[in-house]
Deep mutational scan, measured.
Amino acid sequence: GEDLPLPPGWSVDWTMRGRKYYIDHNTNTTHWSHPLESGPSSG
């Protein structure tokens, strides 16, 4: 998808195989999909 801006506290990194993933430092979790690309989340 597009390179959307990341929310505060997020960063992007790549695996050893070159796969892009996103790090949420607020909750110390990692995600394969961009936080703003996922569907609407409630709460």
Rank of each mutant, 00 (worst) to 15 (best):
L4T: 14
S38D: 10
S42W: 12
P8N: 06
D3G: 08
S11G: 06
P5Q: 10
S41V: 13
W32P: 04
K20W: 05
R19H: 15
K20A: 06
V12L: 07
K20Y: 03
H25S: 08
I23S: 03
N28T: 05
G18R: 03
P40Q: 13
S33P: 02
D24E: 02
D13L: 09
E37Q: 12
T30V: 14
I23Q: 03
I23K: 04
Y22P: 00
L36F: 10
N28V: 03
D13N: 14
H25N: 09
P40Y: 12
H25W: 12
G18T: 01
T27I: 01
D3A: 08
S11H: 07
I23W: 07
G39R: 12
Y22A: 01
Y21F: 12
R17N: 15
G18V: 02
I23E: 02
L4N: 12
W14G: 07
H25A: 08
S42V: 14
H25Y: 07
S42N: 13
G18H: 04
P35M: 02
T27H: 04
G9R: 01
W14N: 08
S38W: 10
G43Y: 11
N26W: 05
P40E: 10
N26K: 06
S38I: 12
S41E: 10
N26F: 06
E37W: 13
P7W: 01
W14A: 08
S33G: 08
L36E: 06
H34W: 05
T27N: 07
W32Q: 05
S42L: 12
T30N: 08
T15W: 05
E37Y: 11
H34T: 04
G43V: 11
E37M: 14
T15N: 10
Y21W: 03
V12S: 05
E2T: 11
S42D: 13
V12C: 14
T27D: 03
M16Y: 14
S41Q: 14
D13F: 11
G18M: 04
W32N: 03
P40S: 13
N26R: 06
V12R: 04
G1L: 09
P5E: 15
N28F: 04
G18E: 03
G39A: 14
S41L: 13
V12A: 06
W10N: 00
R19L: 11
W10P: 00
D24P: 00
S41G: 12
S41K: 12
D13R: 15
S38T: 12
L36M: 12
P40C: 15
W10S: 00
L6Q: 03
D13G: 15
S38Y: 11
S33V: 14
G39Y: 10
S11Y: 04
G18Q: 03
G39P: 14
W10H: 00
D24G: 01
G1M: 10
K20L: 08
S42Y: 14
W10F: 01
G43K: 11
S41D: 09
P35K: 03
T15K: 03
D24V: 03
L4I: 09
P8G: 03
E2P: 09
P35F: 03
E37H: 08
T30S: 08
T29V: 05
P40V: 13
K20S: 02
Y21L: 06
N28K: 08
S11M: 05
G1E: 10
T29C: 06
L6N: 01
D3V: 09
G43A: 11
E37P: 07
P5L: 12
D3F: 08
P5W: 14
H31T: 06
P8Q: 07
W14Y: 15
P8S: 07
M16L: 11
W32A: 04
N28I: 02
D24K: 02
P7E: 01
T29P: 00
K20I: 11
P35R: 01
P40M: 13
P7T: 00
T29R: 06
H31Q: 07
H25M: 07
W10Y: 01
V12H: 06
K20D: 03
P5R: 08
S33K: 14
S41R: 11
R19S: 08
G39M: 11
D3T: 08
P8T: 05
T15E: 06
T30L: 13
N28W: 05
K20M: 09
P5G: 09
P35H: 02
H31V: 03
Y21H: 01
P7V: 00
G39E: 10
D24A: 02
W14F: 15
L36N: 08
G9F: 04
P8Y: 06
H34V: 05
W32M: 05
N28P: 02
G43S: 10
W32G: 03
H34K: 02
E37F: 11
H25K: 06
T27E: 02
D3P: 08
P40A: 12
P7S: 00
W14I: 14
W14H: 13
R17D: 15
P7A: 01
R17P: 07
T15A: 03
H34I: 06
G9N: 07
Y21T: 02
E2G: 09
S11A: 08
T29E: 06
T15P: 06
V12N: 02
L4S: 12
G9W: 05
P35Y: 03
T27L: 03
N28A: 07
H25G: 08
T15L: 04
Y22H: 00
H34P: 06
N26V: 08
T15I: 04
N26P: 01
P40T: 11
P40F: 11
T15Q: 03
N28C: 15
S38E: 13
N26C: 04
W10M: 00
D13P: 00
K20V: 09
W10G: 00
W10D: 00
G1V: 11
L6S: 00
K20N: 01
K20R: 08
R19C: 15
I23F: 07
G18W: 05
D13W: 12
P8L: 06
T15Y: 05
G9H: 03
P40G: 14
T29N: 03
E2L: 09
P7D: 00
Y21V: 07
P35V: 03
T29F: 02
R17K: 14
H31S: 09
M16K: 15
P7I: 00
